[in-house]
């Protein structure tokens, strides 16, 4: 099958800020494709370009065979969008928001009600359909937005940080929806996230930092590429440099510990303890996860568990912000 999304040398500059510095990627139909990167990496910018909301400064992108810059109408009809920030009308009910969307996307009147009921059932909001969105919780709004993104049966569903600030149950439920959806309708899912554990759910992951692709592969292959396991050592301040020098591996330090990748790490542990007598207070070995991949690729840690202040603000906006008053 031919690619559903393809970009060549995609560049976006805002003044002197380079948000995207030349992105080349190919997404196959039916894939769950993850865009992984820290705040400001350029994830939302890429999604906005692919969804025709922004024009690239240079480069080309096609979606479902249509050029995003020159055939925006065709592209828009083919995609569903769940934005990072809220985009519902809080003064309408859940059902009215969906009706509005169905009419805008020319969903035939004869199937409108059925489809609305179906997507509402999928996100567990059927019994709340007559409620104004303004009284919904953040998670309910998010689920409604996802339902809305699917209403017109798009070929590609864009999810920009769909689960930020949601509780673990809701996150799990949303993932379940996404996977079910893909198996039922074959939709391609293009999502961004900076939750590492979530990225594991993707078929393939593109790691992006400073507007550049750092790696693109399946989660397993990315982890395998590190070679071996992750060794985490707590000890004195000079250990980072000394270990790097002694074993010739890149060593990262964070929060009083140093980590590095090592093949056959279990056998390595006694050796390192012997090599640095009295300097190591704790040592552990674990299977590498995507955090380690990210750290390896960028030399930085991505904040996986806590929400950043920006995320928290976004969450508040989702909960309270849109009491649209005129």
């Amino acid at each position: 099958m031919s690619a559903i999304i393809e970009t060549q040398g995609l560049i976006k500059r805002y003044g002197d800020v380079t948000a995207l510095a030349g992105i080349d990627l190919v997404v196959q139909p039916g894939e769950i494709f993850g865009f992984l990167g820290p705040n400001g990496a350029g994830k939302s910018t890429a999604i906005k370009i692919l969804s025709t909301l922004l024009k690239p400064t240079a480069g080309r992108a096609t979606l479902a065979g249509f050029d995003v810059a020159s055939q925006p109408g065709k592209v828009r009809q083919s995609i569903g969008m769940v934005f990072q920030d809220p985009s519902l009308d809080n003064r309408l009910t859940a059902e009215e928001n969906l009706q509005f969307h169905a009419m805008l996307y020319h969903v035939p009147r004869s199937v409108r009600q059925d489809r609305i009921a179906r997507v509402l059932t999928m996100v567990d909001l059927l019994d709340r359909r007559k409620d104004l969105v303004s009284i919904f919780s953040g998670g309910m709004k998010r689920r409604l937005e996802i339902a809305r993104g699917l209403l017109h049966e798009p070929q590609v569903l864009f999810l920009d940080e769909p689960t930020v600030g949601l509780d673990p149950q809701t996150r799990a439920a949303i993932w379940e929806h996404v996977r079910r959806l893909r198996s039922e309708s074959g939709v391609t899912v293009f999502m961004t996230t900076h939750y590492m554990d979530e990225a594991e759910n993707c078929d393939r992951i593109a790691v992006i930092d400073h507007g550049k692709l750092q790696a693109l592969d399946t989660p397993e292959a990315l982890k395998r590429s590190l070679g071996g396991e992750t060794v985490i050592i707590t000890g004195d301040a000079a250990l980072q440099g000394d270990i790097a020098e002694r074993y010739g591996v890149p060593v990262q330090a964070s929060e009083g510990t140093v980590h590095f990748q090592m093949a056959d790490a279990a056998q390595f542990v006694p050796r390192v303890v012997a090599d640095f007598p009295g300097r190591i207070t704790a040592i552990s070995v674990k299977q590498p996860n995507l955090d380690d991949v990210f750290m390896h690729l960028t030399g930085r840690e991505i904040r996986a568990e806590e929400a950043t202040p920006l995320d928290r603000m976004r969450m508040m906006a989702r909960r309270w912000g849109s009491q649209g008053r005129r």
């Binding site: 828009r76 934005f83 809220p86 519902l88 969307h101 805008l104 996307y105 849109s322 649209g324 008053r325």
Partner: peptide, 21 residues
Amino acid sequence: ASTIWDREFGFLKEVLVAPVS
């Protein structure tokens, strides 16, 4: 002017990404 509110509360994006002129 409610267009500004629509932008502020995000709803304008939903409209602008839809396949309508």
